[in-house]
Design a protein around this nucleic acid. Structure first.
Length: 293
DNA sequence: AATGTACCCAACCGCAGGGTA
DNA sequence: ATACCCTGCGGTTGGGTACAT
């Protein structure tokens, strides 16, 4: 936390005349009235979204700027879809949550008309319980279902050691690589000592691991072949957690099935057009739920 | 009908990242 | 490089409501 934030916290900044809109005295809190809604909605309809800081004053609302934004984003926006979450939406939420974790804004990006708050609430109140219950039926605790511990070496950059499922979105640093040839029959199965191992014989596969970070911070592992060309052999997401012994615990492994046709002509593959290829959340469509643990 | 409990969801809060002066 | 500002995200809270006893 920087100095400003420390001082803001203890209230010093207020006395310097640079208080944020939310720290002013006399601002109303709690439920919004119809009248406030009308004022806010009509103001935004005329002046557009943004510049939240000045909005309450200009609109004549005794509300914090953040409260105004939240009210607009979560309730007043005209494109918000009302009504119950459909079965399809529910399925999608579960799949996306499996893929992305609690990154509600990314999940909401795939659910037009829904707000992150709505999805978050729905998950916390309904879906999390249901998925837990289903998981306990499908995968009862047993010795066959334990987390494998795999060592990992410093060859992985510090940034790539962190859990693949981030709690915060981070910037895009790379695109999904377009393969130059079809994948081999071997799937990349193990991440060990900073190298990739094949599924069946535990032999090391050529090349070092390159971590390709999608825009949301989820790590996509690919393999660089010996001549330096990029060949996407497989696509997988590992959720790695650092265990108490310092090793990384393999929490979940998902293989994303890439079919041959896709490699014939990547550019025409319906889910992986130019835009989709750069957006990790688009890849959710590639996951077959039957493959999920 | 009264009371207790569980649940839902709108709203709040702390924090972080990016932009700008 | 630093301080400040704005915005957005995700976790949490608490009021309202439905349901059970």
């Amino acid at each position: 936390m920087d100095l400003y934030k420390q001082r803001e916290r203890v209230g010093e900044i207020r006395s310097m005349g640079k208080s944020s809109c939310c720290s002013k005295e006399g601002l109303k809190k709690g439920a919004w009235t119809d009248w406030e809604d009308k004022i806010l909605a009509s103001f935004i309809n005329v002046h557009g979204e943004g510049k939240w800081r000045n909005l309450p004053k200009r609109a004549g609302l005794k509300r914090c700027c953040r409260s105004c934004r939240l009210r607009w984003v979560n309730y007043l926006r005209p494109d918000i879809k009302r009504g119950n979450i459909s079965h399809d939406e529910e399925e999608l939420i579960i799949r996306l949550h499996n893929l992305l974790g609690n990154r509600w804004s990314l999940i909401t990006g795939r659910l037009p008309g829904r707000t992150d708050n709505e999805i978050k609430n729905y998950w916390n109140s309904t879906l999390s319980k249901r998925t837990k219950a289903q998981a306990s039926i499908k995968y009862p605790r047993s010795s066959n279902f334990t987390h494998k511990t795999i060592p990992i070496e410093s060859k992985l950059k510090e940034s790539s050691k962190r859990s693949a499922i981030q709690t915060k979105a981070i910037g895009c640093s790379s695109k999904v690589m377009v393969p130059t040839q079809p994948p081999t029959s071997q799937g990349i199965d193990k991440l060990r000592d900073g190298k990739l191992y094949s599924t069946n014989n535990s032999q090391e596969m050529g090349g070092d691991i390159a971590t390709v970070e999608a825009h949301n911070g989820t790590q996509v592992l690919d393999s660089l072949n010996s001549d330096g060309g990029s060949v996407l052999l497989s696509f997988e997401i590992n959720e790695l957690r650092k265990a108490s012994d310092g090793n990384f615990e393999e929490n979940r492994m998902q293989l994303l099935p890439f079919d041959e046709a896709m490699f014939e002509d990547w550019t025409t593959y319906p889910y992986l057009n130019d835009n989709a290829a750069t957006g990790w959340d688009s890849l959710a469509f590639l996951i077959d739920t039957n493959d999920w643990p």
